[in-house]
């Protein structure tokens, strides 16, 4: 599969934080969920992808080209939604249309107004008077209305009610149907990612922990519920991390089938993305 986004050995050092050798790629026609706790390096990675920060080393290719070689052209084909950054809220949706029409060559007026109608967004009210969910919908409409090939979304469903979230997730799934587009979506709402993502990339303390297909993760990862005796018998190399609960040990394992063959543990639960992140960050080895 051809990649729409490739990140190789990306590093960036700040005083108190470091992005270490980040590697992952997003194939065409797929959605990648980018997860990790706050301050793990998701936003810094997104900033580096968009060339908003000067990286110390590494290479980023979008649509097969280095961003710095053809930044303007490449950005024409990227739809952006940033969690904490947008234009002034004293603008109306009509104002935003006038602005974007003069920024994106491929701005599709009809599509934008269709999204406004679908999302039931008023046209002559300033965005400041909108609810949080409506504001997010405006950003989504803008991110999609110039026919981008790549969507980079930072927390796109935060502040949305379940109905709106599903509506947006359906739009994202439609977006990748032609097998030419791709979406990198950073989100804390992992249930959304479990619904739509094809890949999950987990970052922790500036390092990529894994970048795998969602099915690989959900099928193979598990949480073995062990007694102290059972836990003591487990080889350290056979689990990722563990958490000591009140009466048992929650052991995060990467391959349920292999683990079952090797150890006689009665309960092995399915691990969802939240469980994996939680035990990985809070657990011990």
């Amino acid at each position: 599969m051809e990649n729409i986004l490739e990140i190789k050995n990306l590093s960036k050092k700040y005083k108190e934080f470091e992005l270490k050798n980040v590697n992952f790629s997003l194939p065409k026609g797929t959605i990648m969920g980018f997860v990790g706790e706050n301050g793990a390096g998701k936003t810094t990675t997104i900033k580096a992808i968009l060339n908003l920060i000067n990286r110390d080393s590494g290479e980023i290719k979008i649509f097969g080209s280095k961003l710095e070689d053809n930044e303007k052209e490449i950005k024409e084909n990227i739809g952006i939604l940033l969690d904490d950054s947008f234009l002034s809220e004293y603008l109306t949706t009509i104002d935003l249309h006038k602005i974007m029409k003069n920024i994106y060559k491929n701005w599709d007026e009809k599509l934008y107004f269709k999204y406004l109608d679908d999302f039931k967004l008023p046209k002559n009210k300033i965005v400041k008077d909108f609810s949080n969910g409506m504001r997010m919908k405006v950003r989504i409409a803008i991110a999609l209305s110039h026919h981008p090939k790549l969507l980079i979304l930072d927390e796109p469903t935060s502040g949305l009610d379940p109905v709106a979230r599903n509506e947006i997730l359906d739009i994202f799934q439609d977006f990748i149907q032609d097998e030419e587009n791709g979406i990198l979506v950073s989100s804390h709402i992992t249930s959304d990612l479990e619904r739509v993502a094809d890949f999950i990339t987990f970052i922790n303390e500036g390092e990529i922990v894994f970048s795998k297909t969602k099915d690989e993760i959900l099928d193979n990862f598990g949480i073995a519920k062990c007694t102290e005796e059972e836990f003591k018998k487990i080889d350290k190399n056979d689990f990722v991390k563990f958490r000591k609960a009140k009466y048992e040990y929650d052991v995060l394992i990467e391959n349920k089938t292999e683990f079952k063959k090797k150890y006689d543990v009665q309960v092995i639960d399915r691990a969802n993305i939240d469980d994996i992140i939680y035990i990985y960050i809070k657990g011990e080895k």
């Binding site: 303007k72 024409e76 950054s85 920024i103």
Partner: peptide, 21 residues
């Protein structure tokens, strides 16, 4: 005044993400 509006909306990051140098 637009400096204030941009600062208030934390717009710099978004603006630099658009296809403009």
């Amino acid at each position: 005044i637009p400096f204030s509006y941009d600062e208030q909306a934390n717009a710099e990051r978004y603006i630099q993400s658009l296809p403009v140098t």
